[in-house]
Write a protein that binds this DNA or RNA. Structure first.
Length: 335
DNA sequence: CACGTCAAAGGGACGG
DNA sequence: CCGTCCCTTTGACGTG
């Protein structure tokens, strides 16, 4: 089976084209040709493409087929994303329907049908800002398709959901084609939300119902949100681990200091209320004249805050004699 | 067969 | 009131 798709008659760039090589890793038969870029529009999303698509560059052919090229028996169809350009543009599906038009959820003959709401976008055939993509699905690629995508003729037979609506029975599970998904994905990169016009045009271009496009964007936003939630969760997890480690460390230090305190009751001779510290010089004095105990003060206020007993082990040690520069010792709040 | 993925449906919230 | 969004659920399908 061959699937030919060409997007745009006046070549212009589009991010999807730059993603194509990556897609090609999974899609053996994938051929894209592209021309003038919309680098100005899309550079914020993909800076790499600017290097490959200068505005004056001739159309670039990306042949992603890993095997020998296959002939192109049918003229390409044309698609473009309207909000990437300044006017509603051309959309010309293969007129003869020979190369299977892009989608898939409808037979080509149904591609000209109006949208569900009965207001199909009127597309001008002569846009100058469109892009041009040729998709060639090799028969080998069809082998990678799920069996439900293929009918007896090897062609995709996903029916429109409207068929189900008409039946009013079960809703058919339909899978969007890789091309549709890629196209929607690129559209999503441009706009995570759609206005009605964009939705209609995109639906028309992808041969989908507007509701399908809308639902796809809703689900896509949900996936993005879920992913972000997972990232946030991971970040919080790491923060929690860090804090847990810090807490353990401080608890251990506290234990050590308590042990030190018990083994050296000498420090207990100084009631806490007798210690004062000069905020300017950080020197500690005692207003107990009989005491000549040496005390230490923290060099780091945060350390002291984190570990109240740390001051007992801080190397900077002073005696009451040091605090002797005509400054009245400050009273502690408790005194 | 269990599980994951994803399109789609349904309902509530919200803004114009 | 209508259209859209988000959230939840459903169901079809693919995969290990």
């Amino acid at each position: 089976m061959e699937l030919a798709l060409s997007l745009g008659d006046a070549p212009k760039g589009f991010p999807i084209l730059d993603k194509a090589p990556r897609m090609a890793n999974k899609e053996p038969g994938f051929c894209i040709s592209l021309g003038q870029s919309l680098a100005e529009k899309v550079s914020e999303h993909d800076s790499v493409q600017d290097e490959t698509r200068a505005s004056s560059d001739p159309p670039l052919q990306l042949d992603l087929l890993p095997f020998t090229p296959i002939p192109r028996p049918h003229p390409p169809s044309y698609l473009r994303i309207p909000w990437l350009s300044d006017s509603l543009g051309s959309q010309r599906f293969s007129p003869d329907g020979g190369a299977k038009a892009f989608d898939v959820n409808r037979v080509p003959a149904a591609g000209a049908e109006e949208a569900d709401d009965g207001t199909p976008p009127s597309l001008s055939p002569n846009s100058v800002s469109s892009f041009h993509v040729d998709f060639y699905m090799r028969s080998g690629n069809a082998g990678s398709k799920s069996k439900r995508e293929l009918d007896d003729d090897g062609e995709r037979t996903n029916s429109r959901a409207s068929d189900d609506d008409e039946n009013g029975s079960t809703r058919k599970k339909l899978r969007l084609s890789k091309e549709q998904s890629a196209f929607l994905e690129e559209s999503f990169k441009e706009h995570s939300t759609l206005n009605p016009k964009q939705k209609l045009v995109l639906a028309k271009q992808l041969n989908l119902r507007p509701r399908q496009v809308e639902v796809w964007f809703q689900n896509r936003r949900a996936r993005t949100k879920l992913k972000q939630t997972e990232v946030d969760c991971e970040h919080l997890k790491r923060c929690c681990e860090t804090l847990t480690d810090e807490n353990k460390r401080l608890q251990k230090e506290l234990q050590e200091l308590r042990a030190l305190k018990t083994s050296q009751p000498f420090y207990m001779q100084l009631p806490a209320t007798t210690l004062t510290m000069c905020p300017s010089c950080e020197r500690v004095a005692t207003n107990s004249s009989s005491s000549t105990s040496a005390v230490t003060i923290p060099n780091n206020a945060s350390q002291a805050a984190a570990s109240p007993l740390m001051s007992l082990t801080n190397p900077r040690t002073v005696t009451p004699f040091d605090y002797d520069h005509n400054v009245q010792p400050h009273r502690t709040p408790s005194s």
